[in-house]
Simulated assay, not measured.
Amino acid sequence: MGRIGVDLYPLATGVPLAEAETFGRFLGGSPANVAVAAARLGRRVALITRTGADPFGGYLRAELRGFGVDDRWVGEVADLPTPLTFCEMFPPDRFPLYFYRLPKAPDLEIAVEELDLDAVRAARVFWMTGTGLSEEPSREATLAALDARGGAGAGAGAGAGAGPASGAGTTVFDLDWRPMLWREKPGPYYERALARATVAVGNLEECEIATGESEPYAAARALLAAGVELAVVKQGPEGVLAVHRDGTVAQVAPVAVRVVNGLGAGDAFGGALVHGLLAGWPLAQVMRYANAAGSIVAGRLACSSAMPFAAEVEEVVGRAGGE
């Protein structure tokens, strides 16, 4: 549930936008990318969002269907344009984003009365993001969806043997901190969402926004204390740390890759995380698999269309010596 838009990326790295002459058009928006990533891995996925009633909105719905993502809950907003996002690519670690989401993004116009709460309850995994909490009515709708899921505690399982979650009733809060999209302090809304989620995922900056803690283990402990059962702290070149409430810890090193565009790596990680949670894998196996998926997309230009298939991820995991 959440953000969608059109990504317009220069077709060459290291070129400032002012000098770029050719662009590729791609489906974008973090939750939409995560949906595509999970679908590429064979999962049955639907997206709750809204677009403008314009050609770009039609393009996004067609792209979702082409990627195998159910678009029945993708609505239109007549008076708001479908968002555009431009990026600049200066590998290995600088990828500025420019969001065109004014006067307001249609995906922030999701209202409670539009939600199919029976479908939200029935999903084995529900994924939502911090950006969905940034404005009304999306904020109220996102919290209502979390309430429909039954709050934290549903679907948590053993971290070591049967996997970090049972797959049933897993609710993932992607911290997804985009400061340019907020007009208020996010703290109170993040707190409410963490109390209702079972899994929290974020990089160090996002964890600090959510908890006030920037040291990885301290951030993970703070996320657990806020209500989730599994805390996943992405550390970029330091890999990923995952801590389950039952005491299981997985610290996984990064996969070496020649970076082309790092923007979609976290979304590939997210789709693979969902896949591993549904499979009931041990925590370390889930993290190795998600790391591998992220590394593949970091080495490619696009985001959504770059999401890997299972065979590609398994090959990278095998080369890295994982399961």
Rank of each mutant, 00 (worst) to 15 (best):
Y9D: 10
T13R: 10
T13F: 05
L17E: 07
E19K: 12
G24C: 04
F26S: 04
L27Q: 01
L27E: 03
G29V: 04
A32E: 01
N33P: 14
V34M: 00
R40T: 10
A46D: 13
T51K: 12
T51Q: 14
D54A: 05
F56W: 15
E63V: 05
G68M: 08
D71W: 05
W73H: 14
W73D: 08
G75D: 03
V77R: 15
L84Q: 13
L84N: 13
C87S: 13
Y100P: 02
R101F: 13
A111Y: 04
A122F: 00
R124E: 11
S134T: 13
A141F: 01
L143W: 08
G155W: 04
A158W: 13
A162V: 14
T171H: 01
W177G: 05
L181D: 05
Y190A: 10
R192G: 08
L194Q: 04
R196A: 15
A197C: 03
A200L: 06
S214E: 14
Y217Q: 12
A219K: 01
A222L: 07
V232F: 03
V233Y: 02
P237I: 12
G239N: 05
V240L: 06
H244L: 06
T248M: 10
T248N: 03
T248K: 06
Q251M: 12
V259G: 06
A265Q: 04
L277P: 00
L283A: 06
L283S: 04
G294R: 05
V297Q: 00
A298E: 00
S304Q: 09
A311R: 15
A311D: 15
V313M: 07
A320K: 11
